[in-house]
């Protein structure tokens, strides 16, 4: 049979690469499929400061690349392909992708999540023309300009702090009156002169011509509407799991995250989930690598008992 493996791993972020490392060292015949970017979301993080072992912090791109190298060193096969569906076939699984089908006895889903959208008028039209989801990639285009960051979590604050290097002013727009972000980031943001906050405020529309010019805002407490002139808006309002292709196969939470037990087993024997994509994940690099290791060990146990 073509493309037949013992274990197939969906996703090449920290969870998938850790699972792959464990699988390769266990000498499982395994393949990892990644749709776009090995390393995953952290590739866009300027500096990861909360992953143990790197007291000075490490750039997300470097950490992702080191994880990839480590899995490769033990012979993990990695293929660039986007998974479109998973079907059960006897005691195996058929994974269909944009580049052909794969067969595997066990599957670990570590497909992660992607940035949520605001879902407001103008967002799609201006993506790449002032609307951005990656401060690291696009910050430099906004030198000496006023920009906004939407969100109140760790990513939003990290983005805002990074963007102060380029922008003349960074306005953080948050729908609540306090931040979710970790304390140390809050302290840094409050101490930064270029950063201002708009509390209890949501973005209702994004307007412009060839590029973003203005945000339409609404105060959620008073209902008052206003406009904010900016040339860019960075959206960091959380993550949505990449599980659209799994509905009907696996039990998902109302938000679309995969339900697993503490061995990372889903309700389908031989299918595991790890990292951001599973319900209850702390959505940290440190927790994702733990999930990946657990899932690989569970998968190995499943394969040896099957």
């Amino acid at each position: 049979m073509d493309n037949a493996y013992q274990l197939l791993i969906v996703g090449g972020g920290p969870a998938g690469l850790s699972a792959g490392l464990y699988a390769a060292r266990s000498r499982l015949h395994a393949v990892l499929l990644e749709r776009a970017m090995l390393g995953g979301q952290i590739m866009n993080a300027e500096l990861v400061e909360n992953y143990p072992g790197f007291p000075q912090g490490i750039s997300g791109a470097e950490l992702g690349s080191l994880m990839e190298q480590q899995a490769q060193k033990y012979g993990l096969e990695m293929v660039m392909a986007e998974v479109e569906g998973i079907a059960l076939s006897g005691d195996g699984k058929i994974v269909s992708t944009g580049e052909g089908s794969y067969h595997a006895k066990a599957v670990i889903i570590a497909g992660g999540s992607e940035h949520s959208k605001l879902g407001v008028p103008g967002e799609e039209d201006f993506t790449g023309r002032g609307v951005s989801y990656c401060a690291m990639c696009d910050g430099a285009f906004f030198s000496e300009q006023a920009i906004a960051v939407v969100g109140g979590g760790n990513v939003a604050l990290n983005d805002a702090l990074f963007l102060t290097r380029f922008a003349s002013k960074v306005v953080i727009i948050h729908r609540r009156d306090q931040l979710r972000a970790t304390r140390i980031l809050q302290e840094r943001a409050f101490a930064e002169n270029k950063i201002a906050f708009l509390w209890d405020t949501v973005v209702e529309s994004i307007k412009g011509d060839t590029q973003v010019r203005e945000l339409g805002l609404r105060n959620v407490k008073t209902g008052e509407e206003s406009g904010l002139e900016v040339s860019g808006v960075f959206i960091a309002v959380g993550l949505s799991p990449n599980t659209g292709y799994l509905s009907g196969l696996l039990a998902l939470s109302p938000q679309g995250f995969i339900l697993v037990n503490d061995r990372m087993e889903t309700e389908v024997p031989g299918i595991f989930a790890a990292g951001d994509v599973r319900a209850g994940s702390a959505r940290q690099v440190a927790s994702a690598v733990g999930d990946g290791a657990t899932a690989a060990i569970s998968a190995e146990r499943f394969l040896s008992s099957a």
Binding site: R35, A36, M37, M80, A81, E82, T97, G98, E99, T127, G128, R129, G130, S132, Y133, C134, C137, D138, F141, F142, Q211, G232
Partner: peptide, 26 residues
């Protein structure tokens, strides 16, 4: 262009499709 990577596909001297971010090959 205010995001990179951006891929712009030109046909007859005009931009036809704009693809923002790292996207799958397919």
């Amino acid at each position: 262009i205010r995001s990179i990577p951006t891929l712009l596909l030109f046909k007859d001297g005009k931009p036809m499709t704009q693809i923002v971010g790292a996207r799958p090959r397919a």
